[in-house]
Design a protein around this nucleic acid. Structure first.
Lengths: 212, 212
DNA sequence: GTTTAATTCAAACGTTTGTTTAATTTTGTG
DNA sequence: CACAAAATTAAACAAACGTTTGAATTAAAC
């Protein structure tokens, strides 16, 4: 068993939770060390700096979606409509099951210090956009989907999810939950509602019968 | 001329820009004082603390949308479809013309310290949701709109916009702009594209002819 | 078992943080 | 002009920040 890799990953997981909850600048290295149960100096020892810890975290988590989207794309047994529905399920589940990381991506993406990280994030987003573009253009060639602004449509998909993951107190109000609802109950109430809405939305948006 | 009110507001404007750019925790009181050209102590003098400065800023900017939505609602000369299109224009323009403040709302809303501010933000969102609900239910009664999940639809509207305002480097890539594009050019390129997309999207989403 | 390297630790480093102080200047009022 | 209130200032405050140090401990290699 690799003790070192375990401890490194443990620190990253703890940092992810704290960054997601209180933001990068709102989280101190001492917070991370204390919650992870390691000595303060270990963070510099393992990662070099707080900034590089964030880079390591992004490197660890990012880029995971691509493989799944590629598989989805290649699956010949699925119709374009099936793929759209699976896409919705996939993204909603993925964001809700990785809430801290997605909060970091959304909050910290604007003012990323390192050009390297910024370019990495962009290239990941562009790659995912390319996969979704393939799904939609395939549907268009099969005369199922109409002409739409694909990058904007992807923004709608991600933005709709984020608008409720980024504002939990408001979301709790909408879902008729108390403000003190646990993350768990919030996710399980939100997920089916978001999925149903997005499927209905994209159904109407993409359907060639709704061409103007 | 009220010099004091001017200076107070000037500090708030500068703070808004910095909070929007670097986040609340990423902005120091000294940053604000320097950029505003006032003495460091003036911020405590005027606002009491950094936290209360943020509260003052939110109090100043928030709640402005409500009056316009109410007017839009009351306007008898507009069809529900007109109202939806105006709603899109209004929100896109409003967000893009107040980018720093909306960045603050989106980034800082999750971890608002003060319960008072949190409740204030929620009540504003709920009031806006009520106005939009009226527009949509009106369209439904007139047999123009179909049944949709209204809170989720509002989330889609706001989230679609935010997904591009929160990630400018990616947005520049999509819009075929250089990464060094000014805020100005980014806004003017993004606005028509977002508006056209959202109008097309909501058109298909709400149209009763697209009932399943 | 000895030696070398990797890991862990308490302590301290120099800055920066938000806020306060107390003296000074400016402003408004009679 | 005189006087009280308000506004502004430089300086200092303690606390928290990210990072480094150098000694102590553990693990690995021979």
């Amino acid at each position: 068993m690799s003790e070192k890799a375990d401890k490194r990953e443990h620190i990253l997981t703890v940092a992810e939770e704290l960054f997601g909850e209180k933001g990068f600048d709102g989280t101190s290295v001492r917070d991370i060390a204390q919650k992870a149960g390691v000595n303060l100096a270990m963070i510099s020892y393992y990662f070099g700096s707080k900034e590089k810890l964030l880079e390591s975290l992004i490197e660890l988590r990012a880029g995971y979606a691509h493989g799944i989207l590629e598989e989805l794309n290649k699956d010949q047994s699925l119709t374009p409509w099936d793929k759209i529905n699976r896409l919705v399920d996939f993204y909603v589940d993925r964001v809700l099951n990785n809430l801290p990381f997605h909060n970091i991506m959304y909050r910290e993406a604007t003012n990323i210090r390192s050009d390297e990280i910024r370019d990495r994030i962009i290239s990941i987003k562009v790659r995912n956009l390319e996969q979704i573009t393939k799904i939609i253009t395939d549907g268009q060639q099969k005369k199922l989907f109409r002409e739409v602004d694909i990058p904007m449509t992807v923004g709608t998909l991600m933005g709709s999810i984020s608008s409720y993951t980024q504002a939990k107190p408001y979301g709790c109000h909408i879902l008729a939950l108390g403000y003190d609802a646990s993350e768990e109950t919030y996710r399980t109430k939100l997920a089916p509602r978001l999925k149903a809405h997005l499927k209905q939305l994209l159904r109407a948006h993409l359907d060639i019968k709704n061409e103007e």
